[in-house]
């Protein structure tokens, strides 16, 4: 059996395994776009200057005596929006991406200080962390560093991508682990999902037909609960079996779509983060834009490209085989 030391050594090796710079750039572009979209919401200004008795600060927000005022919120939001837009374009990313991230953490921290921990944007915020100071603009950027004339696949580009993948897989795994730790088998077997769906439907202005369809069938509720737990606990498999990424993506997207349809809880930022981080975008681009000739062989130009088919074949799960 593998010792903890050996396991951590192998995880370390996987984290530092090479990826093409295009893979990291694609993740930067995707996550910066998501940050930008989420930062453009009017919700932050809407909750600014909230009456003090309603303010229930969590974490770093305890440093603020009351909900920050509109002027501060607007200033932070504008700086963060500019940061996210510039990071998306690949301009001064080691300054602009941290600015967008800090602004997002602050603004979402406000929403999480209203009586309930808000998880909608948490995965997005955490997945960005490994990219904050990474060389993510060496390709696919409007302003590239001079040193990055024709970068090759390297662990420098692989590490942030794999760390973000670890965060995504970890989020689902730990969500499953918390269910086991706090509820045990009863999370699946006790009718838990039925009661959650009935309560949610009753709280909505109109009865929710999707929620009631599942809740009215106890066997289906148990199946949904079991499938959810199975998906969450097995999510780390995607880290070592890249071929299973489409399966887990489909599972995560189905889960979040069902949650939205039945409970009207919108976790699209989390679902989008999963897609951005787990999909090998350079490989997808190769397949889409450098379509194979009729005989099925890849085009020669793709093989010379840093993000081309050759590099994409160096998927973590295939190293050393």
């Amino acid at each position: 059996m593998m010792s903890i030391r050996e396991a951590s050594h192998r995880v370390g090796q996987w984290l530092e395994s090479p990826e093409p710079p295009t893979r990291l750039a694609a993740v930067r572009i995707g996550l910066a776009a998501l940050l930008l979209i989420r930062l453009c919401r009017s919700t932050f200004i809407g909750v600014a200057s909230q009456p003090k008795p309603l303010y229930e600060p969590i974490s770093f927000m305890r440093a603020f005596d009351s909900m920050p005022g509109r002027t501060v919120v607007l200033a932070v939001q504008l700086v963060a929006i500019a940061g996210a837009a510039l990071a998306l374009a690949g301009i001064f990313v080691k300054v602009t991406l941290p600015a967008a991230w800090l602004g997002s953490v602050f603004l979402n921290g406000m929403l999480a200080s209203m009586g309930k921990v808000v998880h909608n944007d948490v995965l997005l915020l955490l997945a960005v962390v490994p990219l904050l100071f990474a060389p993510s603009a060496d390709v696919w950027a409007m302003r590239r560093p001079r040193a990055a004339a024709s970068p090759k696949a390297s662990g420098i580009y692989g590490f942030p991508v794999h760390a973000a993948m670890l965060v995504v897989a970890g989020a689902y795994f730990f969500a499953g682990l918390a269910k086991i730790a706090l509820s045990g088998p009863s999370w699946v077997l006790s009718g838990n999902i039925r009661w959650a769906l009935y309560a949610s439907s009753d709280a909505q202005s109109q009865p929710n037909p999707f929620a009631l369809f599942v809740a009215d069938r106890p066997w289906l509720s148990v199946c949904v609960a079991a499938a959810t737990l199975l998906l969450e606990l097995s999510f780390p498999v995607v880290l070592f079996k890249p071929r299973l990424v489409p399966l887990f993506l489909a599972g995560a997207l189905t889960l979040h779509t069902m949650i939205y349809m039945t409970m009207h809880l919108n976790y699209w930022p989390q679902a989008a983060t999963v897609v951005v981080v787990l999909v090998n975008w350079p490989r997808v681009a190769d397949r889409l834009f450098a379509a194979s000739p009729a005989d099925g062989s890849a085009c020669p130009r793709c093989r010379q490209h840093p993000g081309g088919s050759d590099n994409a074949r160096r998927a973590p799960g295939r190293r050393g085989r």
Partner: peptide
């Protein structure tokens, strides 16, 4: 990993406890 394993809430780091407590027929 520590926050996830031990359910520590230090937002944005989290113990991922959303919907982790089994519901009953009493709401």
């Amino acid at each position: 990993v520590v926050c996830g394993t031990f359910g520590i809430e230090a937002w944005p780091l989290t113990g991922w406890r959303l919907f982790s407590r089994a519901r009953t027929e009493i709401a």
